[in-house]
């Protein structure tokens, strides 16, 4: 028996996920333009692995396969994995990471809607701990053509150290630490001077800043489509910029500028696509602000003082842990119980 309401808005999980995927396209286009088509290979690999893993788990769990495979949520996870990993990691690493995300982090917890952690970020953290070297080799913009990228992805022995470097975020931190050392050649140089090299662009890393801009554009579109609300991207960017800005204002020679932080690494992807994952994120308006602000501060702390190239993934997982507590304590007063 079907009860009221008898009418429904034409909305579905599939449509939501499809719009998220579409919103990623501008960023991906910039990625291809500056770093080569290798990323497309990674996206395809990850998508195939995600669908295969999801199908297998749905079969084991006795869930309707067509319904859940077509909801596109696995593809979103796959794309976020491909976009946060270095574009030249070997194929088996992408596949393993995606399978871990889908099989362990998502399906073993109960599938769509049940995972307490963001699957893509959990996979990123697992992989960077397991394969720190492979996960830290980033080609500079325009450095590798498509065939050498393919060779790196599918080839056997890698001579990667010679051809790739760290991310601009990583490199700048290393340089800043050197600058603080009186014995170093770089001693006394400011962040702005250190950023004079060919690896850097106007705001962040060369090329990388354009990719970030692409994600920002897509994110704003999601905002306009009301798929996400302003709370998470707003609070994340503000907290990241504020914590970076505070230390930068006090000691500009020791820290990168807030703009650099916003334009580099996974900041934009995190703000609009990763932290906004509704399943693993906070849900109340106030909770979203707290959740994203915490992630912003943690991202900066990990970037500035930690050992990993970027902090978004760890910050996301740490804040995912806090979500039940945040949600429970930020329930808005209901109708008639507000104090205006």
């Amino acid at each position: 028996m079907i009860n009221s309401p008898f009418v429904r808005k034409p909305a579905s999980v599939q449509q939501v996920m499809l719009q998220v995927l579409l919103a990623l396209v501008p960023g991906i286009a910039a990625y291809v333009w500056f770093f080569g088509a290798g990323i497309l290979v990674q996206l395809t690999l990850a998508s195939a692995a995600a669908l295969a893993g999801e199908a297998a788990m749905l079969a084991i769990r006795g869930k309707p396969k067509a319904l859940f495979l077509s909801d596109l949520s696995a593809i979103v996870t796959a794309w976020l994995i491909a976009l946060t990993f270095p574009p030249i990691v070997p194929w088996w690493l992408t596949v393993t990471a995606t399978l871990l995300a889908i099989v362990v982090v998502k399906q073993l917890y109960g599938g769509l809607g049940q995972n307490p952690f963001n699957p893509a970020m959990a996979a990123f953290c697992l992989m960077i701990v397991a394969y720190p070297a492979l996960m830290s080799q980033w080609p500079a913009a325009g450095q590798l053509d498509f065939s050498s990228q393919l060779q790196l992805i599918f080839g056997g022995i890698r001579q990667v150290d010679a051809i790739t470097g760290a991310t601009p975020l990583d490199a700048l931190r290393t340089a800043l630490r050197a600058a603080a050392n009186p014995d170093s050649q770089l001693h006394g140089l400011r962040a702005s001077q250190l950023m004079d090299g060919p690896a850097y662009g106007m705001l962040g890393g060369k090329g990388g800043e354009w990719v970030a801009l692409g994600f920002l554009l897509g994110g704003l579109w999601l905002l306009q489509r009301r798929i996400i609300t302003w709370h998470i991207p707003g609070a994340f960017c503000l907290a990241l910029a504020a914590s970076a800005g505070l230390l930068w204002a006090v000691r500009p020679e020791g820290f990168a500028s807030p703009v650099f932080h916003l334009a580099s690494g996974g900041a934009m992807l995190g703000a609009f696509f990763i932290l906004t994952d509704p399943v693993s994120g906070a849900t109340t308006p106030r909770g979203k602000l707290l959740f994203a602000a915490g992630a912003g501060v943690l991202t900066f702390v990990i970037r500035a003082f930690g050992a990993y190239p970027d902090g978004v993934a760890f910050a996301t997982l740490l804040m995912n842990l806090c979500v039940p507590l945040i949600d429970m304590n930020t329930q808005a007063p209901v109708f008639g119980h507000k104090k205006d």
Partner: peptide, 10 residues
């Protein structure tokens, strides 16, 4: 359409 799990979209 068939009921899907809640994704907590709010």
């Amino acid at each position: 359409p068939p009921e899907m799990p809640c994704i907590r979209c709010g």
